[in-house]
Amino acid sequence: MTLQNQTQISGTLYVVATPIGNLGDITRRAVETLEKVDWVAAEDTRHSKPLLHSLGINQTLISLHEHNEQQRSEQLLEKLKNGEDGALISDAGTPLINDPGYFLVKLLRDEGIRVVPLPGPSAVIAALSAAGLPTDRFTYEGFLPARGNKRLLVLQGLATEVRTLVFYESPHRLIDCLESMLTAFGDEREIVVARELTKKFEQFVSGSLQEVRRYFTDHSDKVRGEFVLMLKGAPIKSSEDGEAALIEQDKMIKVMLKQSLPVKQISEIIAELTGEKKKPIYQRVLELKE
């Protein structure tokens, strides 16, 4: 605890990236920070304890996961207000990227508590860096819905996205996900699938959607581990394609209307995907609904 002029000084939360597979990827700064803080908030303490022990660190671990994040964040806020320093780690990679921590970091920043990022491993960035796809612009979509109809709806909404699309997927849903992508994007859209990044059996599989789906269908022994799916964006259309773009937009609207999505939500989704203003899209959704 640090005191200055008899006034308590708040501590700092360090957001620490940890290895996604290869322990050699831990940074020196991460190790030094994890050693010096008063406690470490971890997504799964059972997973993080062996990691810390392998680094020679004996640290107080506090669980922070999706089921207790709001309550635990309040507790950690009090610790930081009392001058303690803490670290936030996830099971692997950079915290908050498809992992818990958003509520905590937002709360601390709102309260004026210092939050310091320690950059390091990230499956998204690692996969993109070696995929051979355009990386000047990309969009990270995380995990797709587990249910097939919802997954297809999301993918159809991304069919005209020109940026490289990045997804996470689990082994038991990989084939179904690739099937949905074939339906939404067609057979020839280029895809790169990365599995087991930084680990012994790291692999990149690239080709058309049809080719990659066939590979994993024929090699079921490769459908294991953790997957990053990277899909090349749609071709950028010229102004002459404006009419065709409107036709595609109407198709997306009709698909969403069939799913009984609210008009407002549909207009917001289309506006986000196209960059167009919501008001005219809202009017078009109403027209098609009638």
Score class of each variant (00 low, 15 high):
A42M: 01
I9T: 15
H47R: 15
T33L: 04
T18V: 15
L34H: 02
R29A: 12
I20W: 04
R29G: 08
K36N: 09
Y14W: 14
I26T: 02
I20G: 08
T45G: 03
P50G: 06
T12S: 13
P19F: 13
H47A: 13
Q59D: 10
L23G: 11
V37I: 04
H53G: 01
Q6S: 14
T27A: 01
I20N: 05
K49G: 00
R28G: 01
I57K: 08
H53D: 13
D38K: 00
R29V: 11
L51C: 03
A42V: 01
E35R: 15
T60Q: 15
A30E: 04
S63R: 12
T60E: 13
S10F: 12
V15R: 02
A17G: 13
S54F: 11
K49P: 00
Q6F: 14
S10V: 03
T7W: 03
N22F: 07
R28A: 08
W39R: 00
A41S: 05
I57A: 07
G11Q: 12
V40S: 05
S48M: 02
V16M: 08
S63E: 08
H47D: 07
T27Q: 00
R46T: 04
T60D: 11
I62D: 02
T12L: 05
A30N: 04
A41V: 02
N5T: 06
V31W: 00
S54C: 12
R46F: 08
A17Q: 07
Q59H: 11
S63I: 03
E32H: 07
N58S: 15
K49R: 15
T45V: 11
V16L: 12
R28I: 15
E32T: 06
G24R: 06
L13M: 11
Q6W: 09
S10R: 13
A41W: 01
T60V: 13
V37K: 04
T60K: 15
T12W: 03
I9H: 13
A17Y: 08
I9V: 15
L13Y: 10
A17P: 10
L55G: 07
K49W: 00
T7F: 10
I26S: 02
P50K: 06
G24M: 07
E32Y: 01
N5F: 14
R28H: 10
D25I: 04
H47E: 09
A42I: 01
K36G: 00
D38R: 00
D44Y: 07
Q59M: 07
A42L: 02
R28D: 12
E35V: 03
I26N: 01
I62T: 08
L34Y: 06
H47P: 00
V40W: 06
L13P: 09
T27E: 00
V15W: 06
S54R: 14
I62E: 13
